[in-house]
């Protein structure tokens, strides 16, 4: 598989602040499903911004599709427009992503910037809205949509460009369970049918098996703590505890009080000794 992204010793800091990413080195192959896992503030969003050429490495090197990402390279044709078409970024806040007066114009925005013909754009708008089952929203203003609808429109505004990679920042945050399910199925279909590369930033361990085969774990020191298959990452309690993704606190079972590492959203069984093993 061709490399989609290649990070070599990348560090980044916001002006006047401590680095939010330190010495990140990893690769993403085409068609992969990678999750970037970390606690709040560990640098997940920063990493996605670097991948999308919105921020640029202060040290080290970021390459996308074989080209180095710099402020100049992402603006200059032919690579600039090609890169913008091939990499789509789904922002955590859909309201920030949907800035046009209507859904139709929202979808048309990207292709218009690419200089596509208008007839082609309007045809693709119809096709993409149909694919996501939101053709009825075409003339609606984005601000009046539900959270789930906004997320679908935001995704449609990326898919219309036929991207090769989708960068997803906490894609299910703020969605109700039904909308979450629909979105996950949609992403699964896109990956399965189109071979789309998916890179998802999340701190939701429940989400991982559905969106990733491989996990990049970011520690609270803003360094990559681990790069391993999803199943192994989820089973590594020590790792998850060290990067603040699970915790240990005291709880009571009748007269017995004990503490052990766990997450509240996952069932797990554990031993107390004396034959009192049980399931949480």
């Amino acid at each position: 598989m061709d490399k989609v992204f290649d990070f070599r010793g990348v560090s980044f800091a916001y002006p006047g602040r401590e680095p939010s990413l330190r010495e990140a080195t990893f690769e993403v192959a085409g068609g992969e499903r990678l999750a970037i896992l970390g606690a709040n503030g560990s640098g997940k969003s920063t990493l996605l911004h670097l991948m999308d050429g919105l921020y640029f490495a202060q040290s080290g090197e970021v390459r996308a599709f074989g080209q180095r990402l710099t402020p100049e390279s992402v603006e200059r044709p032919p690579f600039g427009p090609l890169f913008r078409r091939r990499a789509g970024f789904l922002f955590q806040n859909s309201d920030a992503q949907l800035f046009c007066p209507s859904v139709e114009e929202e979808l048309a925005f990207g292709p218009l910037q690419m200089g596509w013909k208008e007839e082609e754009i309007l045809r693709r708008v119809g096709d993409t809205l149909g694919l996501l089952g939101i053709a009825h929203l075409r003339d609606r203003p984005p601000h009046g949509l539900s959270s789930g609808e906004k997320k679908k429109v935001a995704l449609a505004s990326l898919l219309i460009l036929s991207p090769v990679v989708l960068l997803l920042d906490e894609p299910t945050a703020g969605l109700d369970p039904r909308s979450q399910g629909i979105l996950l199925e949609l992403l699964d279909d896109l990956h399965g049918m189109g071979g789309l590369t998916l890179v998802t930033a999340t701190h939701d361990l429940e989400l991982l098996p559905h969106i990733s085969d491989r996990v990049l774990v970011l520690g609270e020191d803003h360094r990559i703590a681990a790069d391993l298959p999803t199943e192994r990452a989820l089973g590594d309690t020590g790792l998850l505890l060290s990067v603040n993704l699970i915790h240990a606190h005291r709880h009571r079972h009748g007269a017995m009080v004990h503490s052990h590492p766990h997450q509240h959203t996952r069932t797990h069984d554990h031993a107390h000794g004396e034959g009192k093993d049980h399931l949480h």
């Binding site: 919105l54 427009p81 922002f91 920030a96 992503q97 990207g110 218009l112 910037q113």
Partner: peptide, 22 residues
């Protein structure tokens, strides 16, 4: 929000010149 909007525009190919549907 304004910064995110600007980033979302750049991410979809905006380079400072506005193109709209006819």
């Amino acid at each position: 929000v304004a910064e995110s909007v600007a980033e979302a525009m750049v991410s979809r190919g905006y380079t400072g010149e506005v193109h709209t549907l006819r």
